[in-house]
Amino acid sequence: MRLALLLLCAAVALAGCSVFPVSEASQTHDNTTSASPAPTTPTTTSLTLPPRPRELPLDKVNPCTILTKQQRTQLSLDTTPTPYTDTELKARACTIRGTYSGQVARLALVTNEGAELWISDEAQNTAKVISVIGFPALEVRTPNLDTLCNVEVDVAQGEFLDVLFRDGGSATPIPQDDLCLGAQRVAEAAMNSLSTGH
């Protein structure tokens, strides 16, 4: 049950789930709606992550400085990065919004559990294995939540980079396939920064 709640809250952290303190929530997002609960039947089974090329620990990383200003511009994320603590994932996190694009990205640095969390028997989502600059990763879609997409990058033993990309209220709804591509672009930019230690 804990995992089900964790996964749902992590997936909708920027879409209304109460993982922010109230003051941060009011500053970080608006016009949010409650998400429907995920189905109780697991939809992801028998996936495994390939080996990672090397360890890339996150314990000393600031989530709000991973993406450079140039990267944020290229990704159409132009607001000042806002730090907070994701209480469900127990992770330091940062959210960035695109004023004109209507897109929102969230990066969370999870250092207490591995990315396998998202493909465990209890996971209530649809995932597929992808690669982000050579690191194993998962593209995760949560049933009934088609306004967001997650990419989970396996960076070290018991650690992963969680990237959430969502439609923050654009004039024309963004298809989920495009949101997943956006999540991958953000993950790639983040991993390029982490790999070079900018």
Rank of each mutant, 00 (worst) to 15 (best):
G134R: 10
A38T: 06
E116R: 08
A190H: 08
D30H: 02
D178Q: 12
S76P: 05
C9Y: 05
N144Y: 15
T196L: 15
E139R: 10
L117S: 13
V61Q: 03
T73I: 04
L14Q: 02
P173S: 15
C9V: 10
L109S: 01
P136V: 10
S120R: 15
G98R: 09
P57S: 11
R52K: 13
C64T: 02
E139L: 12
L107M: 08
D177G: 11
N192P: 00
I96E: 11
Q70V: 14
R106H: 06
L6A: 04
P50H: 07
T43C: 03
P81Q: 01
F160A: 05
E116D: 15
D59L: 10
E113Q: 07
P83M: 11
F135W: 09
D162Y: 14
D154T: 11
T45N: 13
P21E: 07
Q124P: 01
L117T: 13
R54D: 13
L181S: 12
E24W: 00
Q176I: 08
S76E: 07
V186F: 00
R52Q: 09
T68K: 00
P143N: 14
A115G: 06
V151P: 06
N62S: 05
I66Y: 02
C94D: 02
A91H: 01
C64I: 06
E159Q: 13
A38F: 03
A171G: 14
T40Y: 04
A190S: 07
P57L: 03
L67K: 00
S36Q: 04
H198F: 13
N192E: 15
R2F: 11
A13E: 09
P143W: 02
L58Q: 02
P53W: 01
I130C: 01
T126C: 08
N112E: 05
T172N: 09
G16T: 03
T126F: 14
L56S: 06
L8D: 00
L7I: 07
G197H: 10
P50F: 08
V129A: 11
T95A: 10
A10L: 04
N144I: 05
V22I: 08
A35N: 04
T41M: 12
P81W: 09
T43P: 08
G169Q: 15
T82I: 07
Q176H: 11
T80N: 08
D162A: 15
D30N: 00
T85M: 01
S131I: 02
N144C: 13
R166Y: 03
T87H: 02
S34C: 08
N144S: 14
A108M: 14
A38Q: 01
F160I: 09
G158W: 10
V22N: 07
T99D: 05
T99G: 03
T79F: 03
C9H: 14
C17N: 04
I174H: 01
C149P: 12
P136C: 14
V22R: 04
R185S: 10
G102R: 00
L148R: 11
F135H: 06
S120K: 08
A25Q: 14
S101M: 03
D154A: 08
L117P: 07
L49N: 01
R92H: 11
L5Y: 06
A156P: 05
L7A: 08
C94Q: 00
R97M: 13
V19I: 04
A11H: 03
E116K: 06
T45L: 09
A127I: 04
R72E: 12
L145H: 06
A10S: 13
L194V: 07
